[in-house]
Design a protein around this nucleic acid. Sequence first.
DNA 1: ACGGACATGTAACACGTTACATGATTAA
DNA 2: TTAATCATGTAACGTGTTACATGTCCGT
Lengths: 201, 201
Amino acid sequence: MDVKTLCLGILAHGDASGYEIKKLFEQKYSHFYEASFGSIYPALARLTEAGLVSFSQQAQSKRPDKKVYRITTAGRIAFLDDLGKMPGRDRIRSDFLATLLFGDLLSPGQVDKMIAIRVAEYHALIDAMAACNTKGLTPGHAFVNGFGLTVYRAMVAYLENNRHALVGQTLLGARDHAAAAKSAQAQPLPRSQPAPEEMQT
Amino acid sequence: MDVKTLCLGILAHGDASGYEIKKLFEQKYSHFYEASFGSIYPALARLTEAGLVSFSQQAQSKRPDKKVYRITTAGRIAFLDDLGKMPGRDRIRSDFLATLLFGDLLSPGQVDKMIAIRVAEYHALIDAMAACNTKGLTPGHAFVNGFGLTVYRAMVAYLENNRHALVGQTLLGARDHAAAAKSAQAQPLPRSQPAPEEMQT
DNA sequence: ACGGACATGTAACACGTTACATGATTAA
DNA sequence: TTAATCATGTAACGTGTTACATGTCCGT
């Protein structure tokens, strides 16, 4: 599901301007989707071209006209058609976990700090989501919000319960690394070990 | 952290070929990162150009030569330098949640089926991760693996505990939608309501 | 006979980000 | 005066995916 389709879906739940859609992305959907102005405005333009949405221009004093978009009947049909397809795999790219994967190459202090920061961020997100929850949300939004809340809580709990393990291991590893650095390669992995034939740098 | 940097990190933990790196991505790191051949091979070529890795060519009967990459000292320095930087925000794009957000526009059967499929997929992932866990993993890998395991379990638990709520709401909503469809717009959201001036389709 | 694992690589394409351009209002 | 909110949009750029090109060996 690309930005264009999600915008269409958002408009299926009510009229909105590009700016309002952006706020929705960052305030309510940020735990499973994100989109910048640079993708939202062109998306709305394409949808308009395709006749899937229309817009009304609202003049504002001293500001660019606000364009309030509304989904058309053709748009509703197209969206439902898209929704029916089985969703693809979730795309996740976590710099945080990718960094911790190499925790043994960092100082314990750095690892601990990174985790502390992340925990604080999750706490803030959880508070924000818990506050907005159980109001006048659509069933889908409530479900998805609850999902995010649950996941963030599980993440925080894991980090708080296991950070000592990683930080501790990192400490213990420090000496090993000093030793390993002398020998050409430290290889705890069962990967291509053999035959350095013609090394080309 | 881009594919190039992660490849460098993987090589910091041991030598590997492009093909082996790809397997690592899909078998061990798939819960927080993914990369295709089309990004891995060019990444290794760029790293070689930059002198951050070298490779030894291993002739294989009736197969393209296997290139086993090894990180250089310059590569280790560059990688540690990168690791030290605070990780950016995680990028998540969930088609699944984006679809369920509009659960009220789907039939209860469709919603239920999507959730059932997802639950089954997570169960499979959990079994695979639980099996590979607690072996000869680096501290970082064990930590990251445990993180993924915990998160997937929380997701499954949430889906199993709350699917009935969404499916039920969807059922109840069916009648409302039939009614709402007659009036021009059903708008449960506090968004731009007013002034349809010059609607342009 | 067919698909999957092994093995590397390229090129076209899609998609989205970042930064820029413009400009008023309001709160710290 | 500095930053944030409101408001829309474009263009360059980066990054990664998909599909293609090539070919063997092995299991069923």
